[in-house]
Amino acid sequence: MCLSIPSKITHIESATIATVDTMGVQRQVSLDLMAEPVSIGDYVLIHIGFAMTKMDEIAALESLELYQEMIDLMDAESSQTLGV
């Protein structure tokens, strides 16, 4: 619930304000709710003008790798049934 989307930090104005970019649309967001400091290039989840958390990039990449394995498995199985 609660539309929140990943955006990339492109500029840090102060301890409490940063600029994020979502595919070419920029907005300033508040860092008031972030427990840890952020760096330029970090991906954060933003909701109604606030950054809520940093995206775990390793977890994201691991998920994407897992999905690729599933796709490879699906292809291998369907090749078998097709006799390809």
Binding site: L3, T22, V25
Partner: peptide, 12 residues
Amino acid sequence: CEPVQGLCELLG
């Protein structure tokens, strides 16, 4: 294009 996509993601 990406910026239109970005705006759509941001605002739903």
